[in-house]
């Protein structure tokens, strides 16, 4: 589904990704953990080209999306993204947030988009908030709307960029619950997270990143209970 090969990315003199290679198989949930500034978010943003890479390849469904001839907008329609700070559109209601892209980009009928949005709002448990503007929602509700908005494009992969890091502790659960449901339905997911419980429970595979490289990866049981690399051990001893 996703294959990243030897990707390098730097911001000015700061090397953020130093030749990262990884993959996400269809229906797989991959969690990326690691300290702040280790390049996790940048890796995720390179996968839908919100950041351009200096070298290396990003393949989605076998297509090299770093190639200039690729219509990146078409690719992004199949790759949903959820941001740490939600980035809901404040001038649109919850429902309009979800229907905007399907009607304008996929050109599906307003009635169909509305139906799709209602179904998704039901799924994330926010049907009663359909006509509310984002500023009236709590953080957890905003993030659930953001997930519904991404899902409305019927993506093949979902990228989550620290989806619970900006939330009050009591709201983390409701968002993780939605993500868990999504994983159980077989959605292909790549999740950058600090929620070790979620990574252990839901992730099929966990990658530990530090200083721009993937230091260690494996099943949650392997990585959390029996880490091999000293850096992984040091990190886990601090967060677990």
């Amino acid at each position: 589904m996703i294959r990243v090969e030897n990707v390098c990315k730097s911001f000015g003199l700061l090397e953020v990704l130093k030749g990262v290679s990884c993959y996400v198989a269809p229906r797989e949930v991959v969690c990326v953990i690691g300290p702040s500034g280790s390049g996790k978010s940048t890796l995720l943003r390179c996968i839908n080209q919100l950041e351009t890479v200096q070298s290396g390849d990003v393949m989605i469904n076998g297509m090299d999306i770093t190639h200039p001839s690729i219509d990146i907008n078409k690719i992004r329609q199949q790759v949903g993204m959820v941001f740490q700070l939600f980035n809901l559109f404040p001038h649109k209601t919850t429902l309009e947030n979800i229907t905007l892209a399907p009607t304008k980009i996929l050109k599906i009928s307003p009635a169909e988009a509305h139906q799709r949005a209602v179904t998704l709002l039901g799924k994330v448990g926010l049907l009663d908030k359909a006509d509310v503007y984002p500023h009236k929602l709590s953080g957890g509700q905003k993030q659930r709307v953001a997930i519904a908005r991404a899902l409305a494009m019927q993506p093949k992969v979902m990228l989550f960029d620290e989806p619970t890091s900006a939330l009050d502790p009591e709201m983390v659960g409701e968002v993780l619950e939605v993500m868990k449901d999504l994983a159980h339905e077989g959605m292909t997911m790549m999740v950058v997270t600090h929620e070790m419980g979620f990574a252990r429970e839901v992730g099929h595979r966990v990658m530990f990143m530090d200083e721009g490289v993937i230091v260690e990866e494996g099943t949650p049981a392997h990585l959390f209970d029996n880490p091999q690399n000293p850096r992984t051990k040091a990190f886990l001893s601090k967060v677990l």
Partner: peptide, 26 residues
């Protein structure tokens, strides 16, 4: 906020569409 443009682009909008539907109305 820069995140608004990114949210629009991540949904598959091109620069012009994101500007028209998301940035300018705000």
């Amino acid at each position: 906020d820069q995140g608004q443009m990114e949210a629009g682009r991540s949904l598959g909008m091109n620069q012009r569409q994101a500007m028209w539907y998301i940035i300018l109305p705000q």
